[in-house]
Amino acid sequence: MIHFDNVTKVYANQNRPALDHVSVDVDKGEFVFLVGPSGSGKSTFLRLILKEERPNSGAIHVAGKDLARLSNFKVPHLRRRIGCVFQDFRLLPNKNVYENVAFALEVIGKPRRFIRKVVPEVIELVGLEGKAHRMPDELSGGEQQRVAMARAFVNRPMILLADEPTGNIDPATSIGIMKVLDRINRTGTTVVMATHDAAIVDSMRKRVVELEDGKIVRDQSRGVYGQAY
């Protein structure tokens, strides 16, 4: 589903590569934690999948497509198959929960009838039933992140990328967020989650890829956050 082959990314005006000869394979339906200190290349990894950045060398395949050969014109179609969740939620403050989720479908031209059918389903999936008409500032951090996940998942993407989704949320609430991510993963969606949260990684017992200075230093199925003992 995601295939990195010897990928190196050096940002302009920087000597040290953000990613240094990284090769990794993520299969369909997998749940992968991406761990490592700040600046280790986790975000670059996610941005490369979205083709927001281009690698300096190496090949990236996402959902069977060679990103180097994907024309700019087709990048939006790639992104429709990838959902994204961020630490800062990125909700639209002037739209309510329902409208925020529906926005993702409106802007890719989905018919209104379809939107009316699927948006309530997804709101229920993330556990926000009955709160569809709340505004984002009336919701807790955890609830806002659920809205963001609903928006990321509403178009049934093949891949869900989560960049520290629990970074702004207390540990107790984070468990709820992880349950939703797990639920999404069980529908067959591949999930890649970058995180610093050791407790979460340890509790989930999923595949862990650890980056350090742009290199993969560990790739372990059913791993934990710290070093393997």
């Binding site: 179609h77 790639l78 992104r79 926005f103 890719i108 031209g109």
Partner: peptide, 17 residues
């Protein structure tokens, strides 16, 4: 920029944005 950022992210086409 918030709206356009999200539009980009969810795969809205350039024309739409």
């Amino acid at each position: 920029r918030r709206e356009t950022g999200i539009m980009r992210l969810v795969g809205a086409s350039n024309i739409y944005i």
